[in-house]
Structure formats: structure tokens, C-alpha cells
């Protein structure tokens, strides 16, 4: 994708305020964003629409990031969406699991400033 204004990003984050912040950051940069608050909502959204990138939080209620990834890979393995995963829990085995399931990037939420986030998205897309 060279034209960022057309890129469709799904933001899966259970903390409402953080979700709004990420939405604001990506909207300002010209992306088309959709929020989701857990894995279940994300799955239903993915069912209906095609996203260019999914920004996925690992720790969420109802269905966490890893479970979502497993389901997503099972149902939509032919989809081209980039998967960027983040978390504030720096758990080695979780990160390893995510990479094994096939993600494009992982980063620690508390490390990334808005600028850092945009840089990562740009690099991955």
C-alpha cells in the first residue's frame, strides 16, 4: 500500500481510552480506522470487512489476542492483512506464540509514542 489514506486499520484494544488515543493518532495520519474491544468483536468485524492491517492487543477479556490469532488464522488464512501485535505484558512465551502464529511485528505498548506507532505501521504496511 503506498497511499496511506486508503489503508484500512482494525484497532483491537480493550482499554477504551487507549483505543480512542490510537484511533486519533491513526486518523490524523490519514488511515481509515475501526475500533474493536475484544477478540470476539474483532472476529465479527473481520467477517464482514477486509482490513489492511490489524493492530491487536494481547490481553483482553472474553477473547484475548492469542485466541483471536488462532481463530483468525484458521478461518481467514488467505487474507493479506498485516498483523501488528502489542502488549504491556512482556511475556516471552506469549510473544513467541504470537510469532509462531505468524505476525508481522510485536512491540511493547508503553515503549511506543504516537510517532513510534506511526513509524511501525508505515514500515509494516
Amino acid at each position: 500500500m503506498t497511499d496511506t489514506t486508503l489503508a484500512n486499520i482494525l484497532i483491537v484494544e480493550d482499554d477504551k481510552s487507549l483505543n480512542e488515543a490510537y484511533t486519533m493518532i491513526l486518523d490524523t495520519a490519514g488511515y481509515d480506522t475501526t475500533p474493536a474491544s475484544d477478540g470476539i468483536e474483532a472476529l465479527s468485524l473481520v467477517e464482514d470487512s477486509n482490513y489492511d492491517l490489524i493492530l491487536l492487543d494481547l490481553k483482553m477479556p472474553n477473547m484475548d489476542g492469542i485466541k483471536f490469532l488462532k481463530e483468525y488464522k484458521k478461518r481467514y488464512k488467505n487474507r493479506q492483512a498485516k498483523l501488528v501485535v502489542f502488549s504491556n505484558y512482556d511475556l516471552q512465551n506469549e510473544v513467541k506464540q504470537a510469532y509462531e502464529l505468524g505476525i508481522d511485528k510485536y512491540f511493547l505498548k508503553s515503549w511506543a509514542s504516537p510517532k513510534d506507532l506511526l513509524k511501525i505501521i508505515e514500515e509494516v504496511i
Partner: peptide, 22 residues
Amino acid sequence: HQLRTPATGVKQYLGIIREGMA
């Protein structure tokens, strides 16, 4: 871990302002 979440929120919102996004 629990403390990281609000600190991350502050980082994003202050970051948005200081990076001219608001």
C-alpha cells in the same frame, strides 16, 4: 503491569499534543 496502562495512556495523549496532532 497495571501501572503501565495509565502511563501508556498519558504517553499517547501528551504525545498527540506535543507532536502537533491536535
